[in-house]
Structures are given as C-alpha cells and as structure tokens.
C-alpha cells in the first residue's frame, strides 16, 4: 500500500522531465518500444509510477537503465508526454539517489551550482600552477600524479559506494533472493555490457549510433590507459606515442558528432538536452583535443613556449575527474552495465 505523492512530479521535472503528466495511459510507448518485453515492460509503467510518485518502486527499478533512448516512444506519444525524456530524467534522478554525497543531485538540478563547481576547480588549478611558478615539468608531473590519485580516490570513495547503494536499492531492499553462485555466474553480463553496450543494438533506430558510441568508449578507455599507465606524455616508445595519438584523435573526432547533435536538438534524444548532457560531451571533446595537442607540442618541442596549452589540458582534466566522472553523466557507464548485471540476477 502506498500513498500518492504528487510532489514527485515536480521533483522529476527538475531533472528534465517534460510534460509527462499529460500521459493518459494508452500504452503506445510500451507497444512501440523494441526493448520492452512482457516480463520487463516500459516506459508506460515508469511514467505511471512517476505520476503517482511511487518513489520506492522507482528506486528499486532497473528499467530506466534498460532503456537506451531511441526516442520512438516520444515520437509515437499522442499526448506528447515525452516518455523517452522521462526515462532519461529518471536515470538522472537515480544517479542522484545512488550518490551518497548528494552532490550529483545538486549539479543535475542547478546550472548555477554546476558553473560554480567548474569555476572553483578552475581557480584551484590556477592557484596550484601559480604555486609551482608555472613550471611545465612540475605541472606535468603533478598532472600525472593527479590522474592516478583521482582514479583511485573517486573509485574507492564515490563510485564503489554508489554502486553498492544501487545494489542495495535494487536487489537487497526489494528482498530479491540471489545465490552467491548466481552472482559469480552472471558476472560475464557486467563486462559484456560495460565494453560493448550490446543492448543498444536492440533499439530500432540506426545501428550507427551504437557503433559511434562503441568506438568512443573503446577510444576513451584506451586513452585513459595510455596516459595513466603508459604515461603517454613522457613515454619514449613510438608505439605508445602513436597509440596515444590515435586514441585521442578518435575521442575528439567522434565526440564532434555527439556535441553537434546535442546542439542541433533535432532528434528525440537531443531535443531536451540538459546542461549535464552538454558538459559531458564537450568536456570529453576537450579532453581528447587538448591531450592530442599537448603531445603534438611535445613532439614539435614547442610546449615550453606554450605552457597555456598544458594548463588548459590540466583544467579540463581536473574538472572531468572531480565533477563529471564522480557526480555527472560519466556514471551512466557504470550504472548501465551494473543494471544489466543486476537484471540478470533478478531473472528467475
């Protein structure tokens, strides 16, 4: 038994939901969805639960993560209730609920707070650079150290606890009984989805979107590996240098398409683009581009005279690692794959 909570509608609207209350429950959205099945049916159910404000059920649900937003539901909605964007907003909402710090919610709901966070990190980096007298070697050294520490710290203190919270809300709290053996056996699901986003292939829209995304993920992860573990900027090995160039190029070239489609807002997916979506793709683009240029300047031996470039790269890197990865859209990389893992656990 649960009480209706009409306030939830206002809350979810702050995460970007548009006009979902216009829904009159015809179910066209669920009917046209190519990922919805009889057992796991959406998005109408999620629209309904949002309308009556059943927060506990929404928090326990993995369905928002099982949607890959092709936008067919919104196209076919006779009430223009945008079920696709509601699912997107629920993902933002769930991200905030999983986050124990509460910072995700603040950043998603408020653009000014997001801008303040970016400014604070900017000032922090400038202050640090000033404190080492803008010495390039020290800055690069620090940058590399920072990357390693940030990955460890964000992973241990933010991402892991948050995934644990997601597990608590979706598996433990709803009292889903899962054997240890099942946890182990289903593990493969987690990695398959993490590295392939296989499920997105089930969407009816063009498979190019999936391919682009796949290439970007591989490019991003390789770039991360190259810069952090192979120390690309300081590496003398030709193979590593070329690998870094290729991967950083992939990242910023592919991201151009993502940024421009977000800017054009001409598809269901991009129509209601939120600042958090833009930050994610633009910072990814800047990461790739500045990394590429930094290494290029190193190879041309002109970085010393153009320290500003590295400083820019460092600023983007810090903002990415401290804002977007732990509290921004980056987390969908984890939650989506864990959702597929948990969904497998829930299967009878």
């Amino acid at each position: 038994m649960a009480k209706i909570n009409t306030k939830f509608g206002n809350e979810i609207s702050k995460y970007g939901a548009v006009n979902f209350r216009a829904c009159y429950n015809c179910g066209n959205c669920t009917a046209v969805c190519s990922l919805s099945t009889e057992e796991v049916s959406f998005p109408r159910e999620m629209v309904r639960l949002s309308a009556i404000g059943f927060e506990d059920e929404i928090k326990a649900s993995l369905k928002p993560w099982e949607c890959y937003y092709c936008g067919e539901c919104s196209t076919h909605c006779p009430q223009e209730a945008n079920p696709g964007e509601l699912m997107m907003s629920l993902r933002r909402y769930l991200t905030s609920k999983y986050d124990w710090t509460g910072l995700s919610g603040l950043l998603y709901k408020s653009l000014p707070i997001s801008i303040i966070a970016f400014i604070i990190t900017l000032i922090g980096v400038l202050w640090f650079a000033g404190s080492v007298g803008y010495e390039l070697e020290k800055m690069i050294h620090f940058g590399h150290m920072f990357e390693m520490i940030a990955i460890a710290a964000v992973g241990v203190f933010i991402l892991m606890p948050n995934v644990a919270r997601m597990w608590y809300y979706t598996i433990l709290k709803p009292k889903t009984k899962v054997s240890i053996a099942k946890y182990v056996k289903s593990m493969g699901e987690l990695f398959i989805h993490m590295f392939t986003q296989k499920r997105a292939l089930g969407c009816d829209d063009n498979q190019f979107r999936w391919f682009e995304h796949f290439v970007l993920v591989i490019g991003y992860l390789s770039l991360l590996f190259t810069t952090v573990f192979l120390n690309w900027f300081a590496s003398p090995y030709l193979f590593v240098i070329i690998l870094g160039y290729v991967m950083s190029a992939i990242v910023f070239v592919v991201t151009i398409d993502f940024v421009s489609s977000r800017m054009k807002r001409n598809k269901e997916v991009s129509k209601y683009t939120q600042p958090s979506d833009l930050f994610f793709v633009i910072w990814l683009f800047l990461m790739g581009l500045t990394a590429f240029l930094v290494r290029l300047f190193i190879d041309l031996d002109i970085l010393e005279g153009n320290k500003w470039l590295y400083l820019m790269h460092l600023i983007v890197l810090v903002q990415w690692a401290l804002i977007i990865v732990p509290f921004g859209k980056w987390t969908h990389f984890m939650y989506r794959s864990f959702a597929m893992y948990f969904a497998k656990l829930k299967e009878k």
Partner: peptide, 30 residues
C-alpha cells in the same frame, strides 16, 4: 490536488481539451 477515481474518461469531442488541461496541470487519474 485533484484525484479522479474513474472508470474510463469519456470527454468526447472537443471536451477532450479539458481532460488534456487537467492531466497537464498534474491531476491524478486512477
């Protein structure tokens, strides 16, 4: 806050506008 406990809404013809307005403004239909 309005909660409409109904057996299927029959706002036929142009009266549908009222139903849409009510839904849009956050009335709950059960």
């Amino acid at each position: 806050n309005n909660y409409h406990f109904n057996r299927g809404i029959r706002t036929y013809g142009k009266q549908e506008i009222l139903y849409a307005e009510s839904l849009g403004s956050g009335d709950i239909y059960l």
